[in-house]
């Protein structure tokens, strides 16, 4: 458990921020996702790691110094786990999406103090295309039948049930991702398969805006949104983007939208460092920090407002990185390998 020295490969001079190795855990199963959750502990709450394999989800608690112990495993043998859905500001709760090819159901995994036992409960079934957890124990998902698309928000109860449902007006195109607008409890944005940004009023269910952003950067998905000075800023990524001569291989982009006019302008562009790093595969955003797994097996971190790569975790002899997730308000990066290894880094 000695801090591992890093050799970041940076495109433009010395790093200003860096990643500092903190600890490692190893799940014996192949990882499909990793996340961090707050969990009640003596005298307060503590950050715990959640690892997901195809048939089980495990909760890990910190044991000093720098060690992790698995405290519970929820067995989910019927349908493969696809992803963990982060629920901000919750405690003692894990949300997972299960399915084959696409999400077929969403479940809550939790500890019940009433029965002093761990349990899981079904929240939603369907052909679910996108799901996001919002503040205040809310979950939004889009699902599609042959005839129509359904977008719904559910309010979750602390016992794992669903308290209240709100239907949101669906856009014509399939919704690919959602992001809550930070600081605006009733505003939600989504990206669509038709290269649009859509905006909803969560209280009324109204679809307020459908803003097309052109086909220059196809198949983007939204990670984060906030409103400032009358503009809506959205952080996008391009999971299937190819390298172009003018701007290299794109990872994240910050775009400003004027919701009144539907016009947009690029604010900042974050590229994969030149060299053998490869292309963007998948990533996570917290505040102004973006982290992504690249096709080379490295994890790269960017300051999104400056468009600058600040650190790179190269693939080690033990294998390629496959997962990169932020935890604890962006202060901790979880990097995961398919073999079940998860390393925590302080950023």
């Amino acid at each position: 458990d000695v801090a591992e020295p890093l050799t970041p490969v940076l495109p433009d001079g010395p790093r200003e921020e860096s990643l500092q190795f903190v600890s490692e855990l190893k799940d014996p199963s192949c990882s499909v996702d990793v996340s961090a959750v707050w969990w009640a502990a003596a005298g307060g709450r503590e950050l715990r790691v959640v690892t997901a394999s195809e048939s089980a989800v495990s909760l890990w608690e910190p044991r000093a110094p720098c060690c992790w112990a698995r405290v519970h495993t929820w067995r989910l043998p019927e349908i493969p786990v696809i992803q963990i859905v982060p629920l901000p500001d919750t405690c003692n709760l894990v949300c997972v999406a299960l399915g084959e090819l696409e999400i077929g159901e969403i479940r809550l995994l939790l500890y019940s103090s009433e029965t002093d036992s761990f349990k899981h409960s079904l929240v939603k079934t369907g052909n679910i295309k996108a799901v996001v957890g919002l503040k205040d124990w809310r979950l939004v998902s889009s699902s599609r039948t042959m005839q129509e698309q359904q977008v719904e928000m559910v309010s979750l109860s602390e016992t794992g049930g669903s308290k209240d449902w709100q239907t949101l007006m669906p856009p014509e195109e399939t919704v690919t991702a959602f992001a809550e607008v930070e600081g605006m409890r009733e505003a939600l944005v989504g990206t669509t398969a038709g290269n649009s940004i859509v905006v909803w009023n969560l209280k009324t269910g109204q679809l307020l805006r459908n803003m097309h952003v052109g086909y220059s950067y196809p198949a983007f998905i939204c990670h984060r949104a906030y409103s400032d000075s009358g503009l809506l800023f959205v952080v996008l990524s391009h999971p299937h983007a190819k390298e172009s001569e003018s701007c290299g291989s794109p990872a994240f982009r910050v775009v400003a939208f004027n919701p009144r006019t539907g016009r947009s302008a690029g604010v900042m562009f974050s590229c994969v460092p030149p060299g053998p790093a490869g292309r963007y595969l998948e990533g996570d955003v917290w505040d102004t920090a973006g982290a992504a797994v690249l096709t080379s097996g490295a994890v790269a971190v960017w300051d999104l407002l400056r468009g600058r790569c600040t650190a790179v975790l190269p693939p080690g002899p033990a294998g390629h990185w496959a997962l990169a997730r932020w935890a604890a308000g962006g202060a901790v990066l979880l990097a995961g390998r398919r073999d079940g290894t998860v390393q925590l880094y302080r950023y």
Partner: peptide, 23 residues
């Protein structure tokens, strides 16, 4: 980006669009 690129900006865009959009 400037206001001329993006058109007239309103600080109350969310409330205004909610009032204008179909219920």
């Amino acid at each position: 980006c400037s206001e001329s690129d993006l058109g007239p900006i309103s600080l109350n865009w969310f409330e205004e669009l909610s009032a204008e959009a179909p219920p």
